[in-house]
Nucleic acid binder design. Structure first.
Lengths: 193, 193
DNA sequence: TTAATTCAGGAACGATTGTTCCGTATTTTT
DNA sequence: AAAAATACGGAACAATCGTTCCTGAATTAA
C-alpha cells in the first residue's frame, strides 16, 4: 500500500555513528546530519525521531558492534595473550593511522554526556560492565592455560586492562601520534601477564 | 582616574574553571557564565574577550594549578612510592566523593575539543608532556632510592602511570562509584613498583 | 568640580539551533 | 485506474546561541 524507503536504515545509522563519533553530540548540528546521512530533514525526523533518540540509537549500535568484535576475537582465540595483544595493537594502529582520530565513541560520549543524561550514563556503565565481563572470562581462560600470570586475580586484571584501554583512546582522541608513547604503555601493561 | 573593578579577576576565572569543567565548552552558555561568575555580560566580555578566550584562560589556569600541586608533592616527598600512592588515592577519593563528578578538566577538554581546535590540542599535548616529565623525574628518583623496581625503565613507567591516571578520570566522569573498581586498577598498577 | 573610567542591566543583533509542517512526487496495493 | 501511504525537498518556526551596544549610576584621580 505504501511507498518503500529509498535508503537503508542501518546504513543511515552507520553514517550517524560516524559523524557523532567525530563531532560529538553538541558539536553535530541538524544540518550536519542531513548532509552526512544524505536524507532530508523530514525523512530523518520521521525515521529516527529527534536528535537525542538518533544519538542514542547510534551509540547503541556502536556498542554492540564493538563488543561483538572483541568478544569473538577473545573467545575464538586459542592463545588469549596473543588475542589481547592483537586487540591493543589494533587500537594503537587506529590511533596512529586515522587522519581524523576519533578515539572511542563510548569514551567520548561518556565524557561529554554521561553526567547530564542518565540514559547515556546507563549505556556507558553497562558497556564498562560488559567489557569487564568479556575481559574477565578471557583472563580466566588464559590463567588456566598458563598464558597469563596468576599473581593478580582475574577480575583485578580485567579492570586494569580496560582502564588502560580507555586511557589509550583518550590519547588517540587528543591526536597523539608518537608510536613510542603507546608502545611504552602496552609494554608496561603486558609485563603483568 | 577610573573606577576600580568590583570583582577579582582570578576569582572570576576560578568560577569559569568550575563551570566549564562541569559542563564543557559547548554545554556552557553565555547566560551560564553570567549567572555563575556573577558579573554582567558587558563586564564579562570587556574583561575576558569572547567565550573561546575565556575558556582558554580557564584551561590554562587549571593546568598550571594542577601541575604545580602534583609536582610539589612528588619533589618534596622523600618516599616517591608513597607520594604516587597519595596522588592516585586522592584522585579516587575525589571520584567517589564528588556529588557531581567532573573528572579531569584537561581530559574532558581533550576529548571534546582537541580535535577541532588546535590551540586546545597544543595545551593538551604540552600538558601530557609536562606530566610525563614530572612523573619521569619522580620515577628516576624512586628507582635510585630503591623504592621503585628497575625492571622497566623510567620513561616507560611514567607514560604507563599517566595513562592510568587518564583512565581513572574518565571512569570518574562516567560517574563510577564502586570503590573496588578503582582499587583494583591501582592494585594492578602499583604491582609494577 | 570635572573628567575619566568601569560598573550593572538590559535591549537588541544576526546567526544558528532543533524541529515542524506543507505541497508534491512516487510507489504500492486494491 | 484509483486510492492509500509514505518519501521527499524546502520553507518556516520559535528558541537559543554568542556578541554588541546603549544607558545611567558609581567611583576614582586630577
Amino acid at each position: 500500500m505504501a511507498r518503500t524507503k529509498e535508503f537503508n536504515e542501518d546504513q543511515a545509522l552507520d553514517k550517524a555513528v560516524e559523524i557523532f563519533w567525530h563531532k560529538g553530540y553538541n558539536g553535530t548540528s541538524a544540518q550536519d546530519l542531513v548532509t552526512h546521512l544524505g536524507l532530508s530533514r523530514s525523512s530523518l525526523y520521521d525515521t529516527f525521531g529527534d536528535k537525542q533518540q538518533l544519538f542514542f540509537k547510534a551509540l547503541k549500535r556502536y556498542q554492540i558492534q564493538g563488543q561483538d568484535a572483541i568478544k569473538e576475537l577473545l573467545e575464538e582465540s586459542e592463545n588469549v595473550q596473543e588475542a589481547f595483544t592483537q586487540i591493543f595493537k589494533q587500537a594503537v594502529k587506529e590511533s596512529l593511522e586515522d587522519r581524523i582520530t576519533k578515539g572511542c565513541f563510548m569514551v567520548n560520549s561518556s565524557v561529554e554526556l554521561a553526567m547530564h543524561d542518565e540514559n547515556i550514563a546507563k549505556v556507558v556503565s553497562e558497556n564498562r560492565q560488559t567489557m569487564e565481563d568479556i575481559f574477565l572470562k578471557a583472563v580466566q581462560k588464559g590463567q588456566k592455560a598458563g598464558q597469563i600470570s596468576t599473581k593478580l586475580d582475574a577480575l583485578t586484571l580485567s579492570r586494569f586492562l580496560y582502564n588502560n584501554y580507555s586511557g589509550i583512546r583518550v590519547l588517540a582522541r587528543a591526536g597523539e601520534k608518537n608510536k613510542q608513547v603507546y608502545d611504552d604503555i602496552l609494554k608496561a601493561m603486558f609485563s603483568l601477564f
